[in-house]
């Protein structure tokens, strides 16, 4: 993750309740198990993991950039609808569910004192776990963030019409990925420079 030299893994379980008439979502509890390598400062590490849950859940349910295009007779410019932190919402401590945090210790020999990372890794599984919990609760899929009650009602309506109960983009955007750069490590004869693809085939 990020600048960490090792991969961390996190498992997340989300309990969600959805009110079918309004689409209102509540998340009473989240369990999170993070593979941290070795815990150096347990209080700090748990705080990091729980902070990630907070970030992930806010991203899943609220945080959004909303723009609005001004009419052509004005300037057709895009205007940010929620430019300040009063309207750009994330959870408050009162909105946080109970979080059950488990740190899994399996020291990584390539890392300082065996510690991997805590912070970005545990953020990532929260959003898909929320989406899956909502699917489990009410049988519709919201394929974009944030997952909001109006999208749930829309998906339920589609489902009632016999269409797939999904809301969100219907395809993955075409991303023009560049060709990978291949730079072998010193013990494979690398000198810090990119090697030609043909040479690299042997390495990879």
């Amino acid at each position: 993750m990020g600048p960490s030299p090792a991969y961390s893994y996190t498992a997340c379980v989300v309990e969600a309740e959805v009110e079918p008439k309004t689409g209102w979502i509540s998340v009473p509890k989240i369990w999170i198990a993070h593979d941290i390598g070795r815990t150096i400062n347990p209080v700090l590490a748990r705080g990091q993991v729980e902070g990630s849950v907070y970030m992930g859940l806010s991203e899943a349910l609220m945080e959004e950039q909303v723009f609005r295009r001004l009419p052509p007779k004005l300037s057709s410019a895009l205007v940010h609808k929620i430019p300040s932190l009063l309207e750009y919402k994330s959870l408050t401590s009162l909105d946080m569910p109970e979080v059950d945090t488990v740190l899994i210790e399996d020291p990584d020999p390539n890392c300082p004192f065996g510690a991997k990372e805590a912070g970005q890794g545990p953020l990532l599984p929260v959003m898909p776990a929320v989406a899956n919990a909502i699917y489990d609760a009410i049988g519709v899929r919201i394929d974009e963030l944030p997952i909001t009650p109006d999208k749930i009602l829309k998906a339920l309506e589609l489902k009632a019409q016999g269409k797939p109960g999904r809301v969100g983009p219907n395809h993955f955007p075409a991303v023009p990925y560049p060709e990978p750069l291949i730079v072998p490590p010193p013990w494979e004869g690398g000198d810090g420079k990119e090697v030609k693809k043909n040479d690299a085939a042997a390495v990879v």
């Binding site: 008439k21 309004t22 609005r68 929620i82 309207e87 919402k89 909001t148 009650p149 109006d150 009602l153």
Partner: peptide
Amino acid sequence: MDNADLDLYWRKEVSAD
């Protein structure tokens, strides 16, 4: 009106609830 938080149509819809 579309000058506050949350989806406009949804806000109207759930007023009955």
